[in-house]
């Protein structure tokens, strides 16, 4: 019954040689895709950023006009500032809203845990834009919220909620909330409840337990959540478009306008590069300050 095949020493070498190329074969198609359709376009962007308009509309020639960077940045400095301010505020708000939510799901939900997790992600299953428009209509001038406030005489016909910075930040917060909640939940869920009990046992009250034990242990989730919220929020322009007014435009609106309204491709490219590098530097500084290497 027992089974023995021809076991020979030279098997060792052939299997090692075969193994050496396997990872590269596995990587090749996906890496090809990312290099061609992500990396190459980004490099092209650098090329485009220093071009100037040619003889025909929509045609550009390389003139190495590095001043494009400064000109387009200076022209959009307000929108840049706003982008980072709005996304910072939205990230902070999302953290404040998500943390108790994630905490409740991780520690207080019992057998409902999985169901509640699904509910957190559920809003994702309707279109991002549809949700944003829903908010616009709910909070809008003909919407139910202002209607109720007016009936209660808490608002008059001049009161507006939408078309404001507040509405844009609120929209950003809402739309990226699951990006914050899920990583927070994941890191909280990994905490052994006995550690928290031990802290209580060692005379820490609930608040102390939270700030000395729970919060530090959940820091990988805080890091991942804030990044996953901040990055897309900084580049977003849908919320500013639907919930804002001309004075609340963000950098994404400007890039979009450069492309589709003024056909200023070099300007759009320059702004994209500045935005991308600023975010990358902020992210790296942030990771270095707080981070672990668990992100990738």
């Amino acid at each position: 019954m027992a089974y023995v095949a021809n076991a020979v020493g030279h098997n060792k070498k052939t299997s090692a040689r075969r193994g050496r190329w396997t990872p590269y074969l596995l990587l090749m198609p996906g890496m090809f895709w990312l290099i061609t359709f992500f990396l190459l376009p980004i490099i092209k962007l650098f090329d485009k950023a220093t071009q100037s308009p040619g003889d025909n509309i929509g045609q550009f020639v390389q003139t190495w006009s590095f001043s494009n960077y400064w000109d387009s940045f200076w022209g959009a400095k307000a929108q840049f500032g706003r982008s980072f301010l709005f996304s910072f505020l939205a990230t902070l708000l999302a953290l404040l809203i998500s943390y108790p939510l994630a905490y409740a799901i991780a520690f207080k939900s019992g057998k409902w845990k999985n169901t509640l997790l699904v509910l957190v992600v559920a809003p994702f299953y309707t279109s991002f834009i549809l949700r944003t428009i829903a908010w616009e209509q709910i909070l809008g001038n003909q919407g139910p919220v202002l209607g109720i406030l007016r009936t209660l005489h808490l608002a008059n016909s001049n009161t507006h909620i939408t078309a404001s910075s507040f509405a844009v930040v609120a929209g950003l917060t809402y739309n990226f909330l699951p990006f914050m909640t899920l990583p927070l939940y994941a890191s909280l869920e990994r905490i052994d409840p006995r550690v928290l009990e031990a802290s209580g046992d060692l005379y820490a009250n609930s608040w102390k337990t939270f700030f000395r034990v729970t919060f530090p242990l959940s820091s990988p989730g805080v890091l991942a959540g804030t990044l996953l919220t901040f990055i897309p929020a900084a580049g977003d322009y849908i919320n500013a478009d639907i919930l804002g007014n001309p004075g609340t435009k963000m950098i994404g609106n400007v890039i979009d306008a450069h492309f589709f309204q003024t056909t200023d491709y070099p300007g759009a490219a320059a702004l994209s590069i500045i935005l991308m590098l600023t975010i990358l530097i902020l992210v790296l500084l942030y990771i270095r300050r707080f981070g672990t290497e668990e992100l990738v």
Partner: peptide, 22 residues
């Protein structure tokens, strides 16, 4: 790993604009 991470750290508007340029 860096090449995997970068698209997640790049704003959509940058990816959209750069890809259109290509």
């Amino acid at each position: 790993n860096i090449l995997i991470f970068l698209p997640m750290a790049t704003p959509e508007v940058v990816m959209g604009a750069s890809l259109l340029t290509l």
